[in-house]
């Protein structure tokens, strides 16, 4: 097959994007673990590791731009590079959200709302992201659509979680015996919990973006792009 060097570069890009996704998914899982265990070391590992992911992102961006500039890719090759270029942005943002989880873990002293199951939502969105990258690797369009459906469920879980927090807050009695410190701690916990839920919901959205770019890559289909 002609253009062997070019074909190898395309293959390298595919492998590098998949490698970056593995690192990001590991980081996301660590962030969730840190949140659950309140393990400070784990949380710092996630936060400090972001530098490495940013560098991976920049390297991959350069790889894509070089291919575009030097090889003038067209058709399926062009769509593969364009999709990869977008997907690495989603991966980088997922890593940023994992950093947020690490920071929440450092701040949180206790679980004010044990009935809000952040971990179940977390497992769900980690799996969605893994599936999205499987779809990219295997060029599996059915899986792309399945991720779109799964995200609708995650959105509902997140809405329920936020509602639970707000309802609990409204029903909570604050009287003269409640200290100022307790009120402040409550406010911080509530906003942190709401942010956690929102961030996880966004992690799910990035999985949908990756699935959408994969659909474009495989079938030139923009069905999931909204």
């Amino acid at each position: 097959m002609p253009r062997e060097g070019y074909q190898e570069q395309l293959e390298d890009l595919r492998e590098d994007v998949l490698y970056m996704s593995e690192v990001v998914h590991d980081r996301l899982q660590l962030g969730l673990d840190a949140l659950e265990t309140k393990d400070e070391d784990l949380a710092r590992e996630v936060i400090d590791g972001d530098e490495e992911i940013n560098q991976l992102y920049l390297d991959l961006e350069r790889e894509c731009v070089n291919l575009l500039a030097l090889q003038q890719p067209v058709a399926g090759d062009l769509r593969f590079i364009a999709a990869s270029f977008k997907i690495i942005t989603d991966l980088e943002r997922v890593a940023d959200l994992a950093v947020n989880l690490g920071e929440y873990a450092l701040e949180a002293e206790q679980d004010m709302y044990p009935d809000v199951d952040v971990q179940t939502i977390g497992e769900e969105v980690v799996e969605m992201n893994e599936q999205a990258m499987d779809a990219y690797a295997e060029e599996d369009t059915d899986l792309c659509y399945a991720i779109g459906d799964r995200d609708d469920e995650v959105d509902m879980m997140c809405q329920d979680a936020s509602d639970t927090v707000m309802r609990n807050l409204i029903e909570r009695e604050i009287d003269a015996d409640t200290s100022e410190a307790e009120v402040e701690s409550l406010m911080r916990d509530v906003s942190r919990l709401l942010l956690t839920v929102r961030d996880l919901e966004r992690v799910g959205d990035h999985a949908v973006n990756i699935a959408a770019r994969t659909l474009y890559m495989v079938d030139n289909d923009d069905a999931l792009i909204y």
Partner: peptide, 14 residues
Amino acid sequence: FENPESQRVEDYIT
């Protein structure tokens, strides 16, 4: 150049 229908065309232009 973005999405040719024919695989032969795809193979040729890439």
